[in-house]
């Protein structure tokens, strides 16, 4: 990468100037002695009555080992953006950190927030730069992104999903990623078509309860999905993105909504 003058407001080019840019090294071919990768699944997002709900289980696995049931896979990037990570946490958390710093850097230095298309592409750029790791089968990240579009009036939250190479797609009603996503997409598709109410018509309690039950269902078919277990106080990570900002649904709220 060249070390010319950084592009105004672009944090990655500022890092490049200091030779600090995150890079995806080309690793040697995987050997029998290579450590088993930690993986984080399952995440999804759907439109509910007041915005977008993003949720994920809290399990990370390495092969058949459960590494932890306390991972936060739904990350607030800024008051108008939420990232849901599925894949290798080592890479995904670094991407989240780059995005958090990049968006704030742009807002502070340019005295205006980054547009939604630019925020969506910023994640696509990180995925493309991770291509060497993706092609080697290590460090794969397949995230979801939700952001508020302030170019329309009134402002509206939108959901985007990506492929591992960085292609971005806007989801009309919902999106899911990770090993349990097949089950979740099936239920979401059914509910969107035949459900009463549809997810996009649900109020807060119904939407949170629905999200918790989606994860519980996915965990019955996918051992890498942690699911919900009130007995061990294990709940999902749930964040709501509205035009007004990001809200976190606490474990206590989830417990209350599930017992209603």
């Amino acid at each position: 990468m060249s070390h010319s003058k950084p592009i105004a407001g672009d944090f990655l080019s500022l890092l490049a100037e200091h030779r600090l840019e995150p890079t995806a090294p080309v690793a040697p071919a995987a050997s029998a002695g290579a450590p088993v990768q930690t993986q984080a699944t399952t995440v999804f997002g759907f439109h509910w009555a007041e915005g977008v709900l993003m949720a994920g289980d809290r399990r990370a696995t390495a092969g058949n080992v459960i590494v932890t049931d306390r991972v936060e896979k739904i990350i607030e990037i800024d008051p108008t953006s939420v990232l849901a990570i599925a894949g290798v946490p080592a890479t995904a958390f670094e991407m989240a950190r780059v995005l958090q710093t990049s968006f704030e850097y742009y807002r502070r230095s340019q005295l205006q927030p980054l547009s939604l298309p630019a925020r969506v592409r910023a994640l696509a750029r990180l995925l493309r730069e991770n291509l060497p790791m993706t092609m080697q089968g290590i460090g794969i990240v397949v995230p979801l992104f939700a952001g508020v579009d302030h170019a329309v009036t009134p402002a509206e939250p939108r959901i985007y999903f990506y492929d591992p190479l960085g292609a971005q797609f806007q989801a009309v009603g919902y999106a899911a990623s990770g090993s349990g996503s097949g089950t979740i997409r099936s239920v979401l598709s059914f509910q969107e078509r035949y459900g009463q109410p549809r997810p996009s018509q649900m109020g807060l309690r119904d939407a949170v309860r629905f999200a918790s039950r989606l994860l519980a269902t996915a965990s019955e078919f996918d051992s890498a999905t942690g699911g919900i277990n009130p007995a061990t106080e294990t709940y999902a990570t749930i964040k709501l993105l509205k035009a007004s900002g990001v809200e976190t649904i606490t474990d206590a709220q989830q417990k209350e909504f599930l017992h209603d």
């Binding site: 944090f11 890092l15 200091h18 600090l20």
Partner: peptide, 8 residues
Amino acid sequence: DAAHVEAF
């Protein structure tokens, strides 16, 4: 610039 590079 300095603050954000330091934070990162």
